[in-house]
Structure formats: structure tokens, C-alpha cells
Simulated assay, not measured.
Amino acid sequence: MSLTGGSVSVRHPAQHRGRSRLSPQAYLATTGRILRQLLADHRSVAMILVVPSLIITLMYFMFQNAPHRPGAPSPFNNACLIMLGVFPLIVMFLITSITMQRERVSGTLERILTTPLRRLDLLAAYGTAFSIAAAAQATLACVVSYWFLGLYTEGSPVLVFLIAIINAVLGVGLGLLCSAFARTEFQAVQFMPVVIAPQLLLCGIIVPRDLLPDWLQWISNVLPASYALEALQEVGAYPEPTFVAVRDIAVVVGFAVLALCLAAATLRRRTP
């Protein structure tokens, strides 16, 4: 745009927004807003924090009189380890997919995406907020399991705690990704039997993976829950981190990052 005595360069607002970078203030403000919304939803808070510990406590009494060989781990130990890995994945998938769909339908997501906040940065804020919620869930569940219910693992409880958080982040990534293909909150919930149920069936909880038919073993080998459960079993059986446990944790982290990136690529401003 030319003026008398010189010229002034004017950039299109959309171009300016596309080149802008996320400021720490915007990222923290978005994360704080999501956490405040989550805290205001008392049912979601109860589902995240209280329900897993209550179900683990119920399982403790279920297995209290179950026979087991002398010197062998109690059946509760194995079941509790499985639950500590499964609950974060299931709960955070449900909470995240429903919350993101609610943001889209209400128009909040559309308003946010008109700001300099980029899509990947927005999902990073969601991942951070729900990871904090997952850390609170894992802390309470591990404290109840180890201190009150007598859970014992050869490996460090810190590794169990770490795997639980990683599983929760994986649930967040899968929830954000699936919410992009849903038009209602009910449709978001319907993705659970499609995305989560096959992982629970094929990860070795019901039938050991090496006893599955070859074609099901191939499918199991590309599902992140299989590696999460195997890592927990390694921590439960060995006092020091094994190569298999470290490898499995790295694989689950890779799946979580990939899910978040795919969610960012498929994020739409609102449901058509």
C-alpha cells in the first residue's frame, strides 16, 4: 500500500496469524482454562480420581480368599497391575473425546482457532491439562494400591506410576483423534468399542498373546496396549528395568505422540 512520501507494508491478518508463534502466556492460559473446566465438572473429577481406586479396592476384596501357590504372587497383584494400566487409557479416552466434542459443538473451539494459537499448540494444551489429571489419578490409585491394599512389585512403583501416566496420555491422544470424526458426544463414546475394546481383548489380559492365532498376534503387535501391559508385567517380575520394559515404554510414548500429531492434522474448527 503506497502513501505520499513512502510506503507502508500491510500483511493480511490471516498471514500474520499463520506465522505467529505460541507465547507461553497463551499456552498456560489455555491449559488453565481446560483445568478449570474440568474441575467444575464434579462427575468427571469423580470418574478420574475416585472410581479407579474404588474398583481396585473392590477387586482386592474379590481376590482376598482366592487360593494361590506359596511364594507366588497373589492373583490381586496381577489384576491390580492390569487395572493400573487399563484405567488411565479408558478413562482419559472417554473424558477427552467427550470434552473436545463438547468444545466443538459449543463453538468454543472455533473461537479459539481464530486466535494465534495453532492447532498443535491447542492439542498440546489439552494433552498437558489431561496429563495433570492423569498424574493425579495415577498418584491416588498407586497410593491406595501399594500403601493400603498391599500391592507388591519387584520393580519400582515409580515405573508403574510412569507407565500409568503414559497410558493416560495415549488415551488423551486417541480421544482427541477420534473426536475429530464424531459429530455428537454420543458418537464420540461409540468409538470406544472400536478403538479400545480390541486392544483390551488382544493385549494378553484374557488369552496370552503367544497363544493367539498368528494373524491375531500380528494385530496385537501393532496395538499400543499390548506393549503397555507387557511393560507392567516386566516391572512386576523384575527388580531392575529390563530391555523389554524400556522398549515397550518407548513404543507406547511413540504411539501417544503419533496420536497427538494425527489429532492436530485432523482437527476441524467445528462439526459440520
Rank of each mutant, 00 (worst) to 15 (best):
Q137T: 06
V91L: 03
P24E: 01
M62L: 13
A264W: 05
D121F: 02
R19H: 14
Q15R: 14
V222D: 01
F186L: 06
F181Y: 15
L212S: 12
T266R: 12
A264M: 06
L28W: 04
L28Q: 07
L3G: 11
L122Q: 11
L201R: 01
I90R: 00
S7W: 01
G204W: 02
S145V: 11
C80E: 00
I196K: 00
G175Y: 11
F255R: 06
G175L: 10
F255T: 09
G155Q: 05
A40Q: 06
I48R: 00
Q190L: 15
Y227G: 03
N65G: 13
A164L: 12
Q37E: 01
I55L: 13
L149P: 00
V51F: 09
A72I: 08
L174F: 10
V51H: 00
A188C: 09
P213R: 04
R119E: 07
S131Q: 03
I163D: 04
R43I: 15
L176K: 02
A129N: 07
L176P: 07
C142W: 01
L49W: 11
A136P: 04
D41W: 06
L81N: 03
A40I: 10
G107C: 06
L170M: 12
V194G: 09
S23Q: 11
V86G: 02
F161T: 02
A66L: 02
L201G: 13
V257P: 01
L38T: 12
F191E: 01
A168I: 05
D248M: 09
E154M: 13
P193E: 02
G107R: 02
L211W: 09
L113K: 07
F61A: 14
T30R: 10
R183I: 10
I90K: 00
A29I: 08
V207G: 09
N78T: 13
Q190D: 08
A134L: 07
G254K: 13
V235H: 01
L122R: 01
V105G: 04
L123D: 00
Q199V: 15
A72E: 11
P239E: 02
A66K: 02
M59Q: 15
P208C: 07
I132A: 13
E110S: 10
T115A: 07
A250S: 15
P24S: 06
T96P: 04
L267Q: 10
M59I: 14
Q15H: 15
L151K: 06
M100N: 12
S74R: 06
V144N: 05
V257Y: 01
H42T: 15
G150D: 05
R247P: 04
R270E: 11
N77F: 08
L202T: 07
Y227P: 12
N221Y: 15
T139Q: 00
F181P: 08
P24A: 12
R118M: 14
H16Q: 09
L49K: 05
L260T: 10
P13Q: 08
L258Q: 03
V251R: 07
L260I: 13
R104N: 07
T96I: 03
V50P: 01
G150K: 05
T128R: 04
A14H: 11
R119G: 07
I55F: 10
P193Q: 12
S9V: 14
R268T: 11
N167V: 04
L267P: 02
F255H: 00
L216G: 12
L201I: 15
W147Y: 12
L38Q: 08
L177Y: 11
R33I: 08
R183E: 06
A133E: 00
R209K: 15
Y126H: 15
Q187V: 09
F61G: 11
P13A: 13
L212I: 09
A134W: 00
A250H: 03
P24Y: 04
